[in-house]
């Protein structure tokens, strides 16, 4: 893995940009194309690229598998929890308008934000979890073996 100097340098430059772009896609989803699902996949892709270049063990140090496990449950719980909150506030499941009774459209914004955050967490964590599960199951390959 040591000889790939160009790959390492370029990916070191790119990985933070990819992660930033994921959050741009996440929070700009109300205005442009994108949203939690796409952002989650892009965020996972940043970590997967890191694992491909620097090795799976390094990636697991950066994003420990336990975080991934917690993240995937937290994401689904955040989505469902938003629904339960609207429920407790006396409206239907996942009707966000009730979050701010004075301005229903503001409530919609908050609700969409929370829900998309849940999707981001769930998708990014699940993608990483599947990658970790498969990637840990084989020895690292030398370049010739590809």
């Amino acid at each position: 893995m040591t000889p790939h100097v160009i790959l390492r340098v370029v990916s070191k430059l790119l990985i933070p940009l990819i992660a930033m772009f994921a959050f741009y896609v996440q929070f700009h989803g109300d205005y442009g194309p994108g949203g939690g699902f796409q952002a989650g996949v892009i965020l996972a892709a940043a970590v997967i690229l890191y694992a491909l270049i620097f090795g799976l063990d390094e990636a697991k140090k950066a994003i420990p598998p336990s975080w991934v496990r917690i993240g995937m449950t937290l994401g689904v719980l955040l989505y469902g929890g938003t629904g339960v909150v609207t429920w407790l506030l006396g409206s239907e499941f996942l009707s966000y308008g009730v979050l701010t009774p004075d301005h229903p459209s503001h409530g919609q914004h908050y609700g969409i934000l929370a829900v998309e955050l849940g999707v981001l967490l769930a998708v990014a964590s699940v993608m990483l979890a599947i990658f970790y599960a498969f990637g840990s199951r084989q020895p690292e390959l030398s370049d010739e073996d590809w």
Partner: peptide
Amino acid sequence: IPNVVTAVLAS
């Protein structure tokens, strides 16, 4: 919000 896709998807 301007993006109808997000509105349909999330709300």
